[in-house]
Amino acid sequence: MPRFFGFVRDQYTALPLPPTPADIAQQTFVVTGANTGLGFQCAQHLLGMGAGRVILGVRSVQKGEAALAAMRQATGRHEAGAGTVWELDLQSLDSVEKFSQRLATLDRLDALVANAGVVMTERQIVQGIELSLLVNVVATMLLALRTLPKLQASARKFNTTPRLVIVSSNSALESNMKGAVPSAGGVDVFDKLSEEDGFGTFSQYPKTKLLQIYAVRQLALLLPVATTAGGVVINAVSPGLCYTDLDRNASRPAKVVLAIMRKLLARTAEAGSRTLLQAAFAGPDSHGAYCSECRVKNEDVPAWITNASGKTTQERVWNDILKRLDAMGHGVDVAALAAPAPSARVV
């Protein structure tokens, strides 16, 4: 119950807009799932703040163009190049690769806000894995890992500190998630969580978000922002319960429950998007951290995630992500990401 009351308090917390970076007119941002909800509001804020370029990563280019037109109307940013729509389908790792290859052609990249995700209330297996695990974890982490070289190169070229933001959820931190991810027994995490037994309307989504938090913590550990050449701040952010269409795939009973919860407690998508902006502008103290209510909130992360047992689970989740990507033909050389840039090597 104490955690519930804390959640209610947090939902009614006033969320400030973060200060606009002085050099935002030179910066490039990518927001996935930007045609609706939190992503739309985040991208619109960035345009309104004067960002040099905002790239909307969307599954439907047509819907993305309609969203961009609305953003331009709201912000007055009609100049060519200020907003761009790129196709990105997180159900396809090939689409993630193509999107990442386009990002590699940019002159600079200052932040990736990985916001796109799905809630599934019916179990679907795609490419041998449950769909929300594929989209929210495997594809999202592939996008993050493929984007890191451009973020690192931008840091070195422009003497900046880019950000990699994974949009997670406070539902991952609830006590009923303790033990939800297998930590022993030699069972692949994704095989286990893809099984029909254990799949539930309101349990699968938090599990995917818990995997994200473990992955962010491990990636940040492997790539310390202060010591890695081309340092990138990597964090996870929870926007809280918001009015969005994230539950568009939910069953009717689930939508009814969520509608009641939203009526009582939800933030607007605009208010929730402020948490994404805070994470996209956050300092090195947010590296590997959990952010919510527009600040670093590591105190909300339970001990079962941060203690020795949690760290063992974290490593297991990370290794299973890399194994899954490799098995699906999209292997990642994480050691290369942690290696010093050629000009920074000690001779």
Rank of each mutant, 00 (worst) to 15 (best):
M120Y: 00
N249G: 08
A341I: 04
K192N: 10
G198P: 03
L151S: 08
V167N: 02
A303F: 14
P302W: 10
V237K: 03
G37L: 05
F190G: 01
R262I: 02
A104S: 11
F4G: 06
L276T: 00
H78R: 14
L106R: 00
L134F: 05
R217H: 10
R345M: 14
A250I: 00
R59S: 08
L47K: 02
D110C: 03
A308Q: 15
L38K: 01
L276I: 04
L47E: 00
P18A: 11
A43M: 00
A66P: 03
Q62K: 15
M261D: 01
V347Y: 11
L56P: 12
L15C: 10
F158A: 13
R316N: 12
A70N: 01
I125F: 02
K98D: 09
A69W: 02
A271D: 11
R267Q: 06
K255W: 05
Q27A: 09
A250R: 01
E65F: 10
W318S: 04
Q101A: 15
V257M: 10
P253V: 07
D107E: 15
R77F: 01
R163M: 07
H287A: 05
M328F: 13
G283S: 12
S203D: 01
D247G: 13
E79Y: 12
V301D: 11
V119G: 01
V96I: 04
R267F: 07
K207V: 06
Q44W: 04
V233H: 00
A22D: 13
G50C: 13
T208W: 04
S203R: 04
A69L: 14
V237R: 02
F202E: 00
A344C: 14
L68Q: 03
E174K: 09
H330E: 09
N35M: 06
Q218T: 02
A184D: 05
V346Q: 14
V31E: 03
F40R: 02
L173K: 08
R267H: 06
V61Q: 08
D188P: 03
G57A: 11
P302Y: 05
C294N: 04
A139E: 02
V167K: 03
S169H: 08
D89V: 10
N136Y: 06
E196H: 04
Q27D: 03
T312L: 15
F7Q: 03
D247H: 11
V232W: 01
L68P: 05
L47F: 01
E122L: 10
A25I: 04
G310A: 11
V334K: 12
R72S: 14
P253K: 03
P182S: 12
I321Q: 09
V137R: 09
N307G: 10
T13G: 00
L90E: 02
F158I: 06
Q278C: 12
H45L: 04
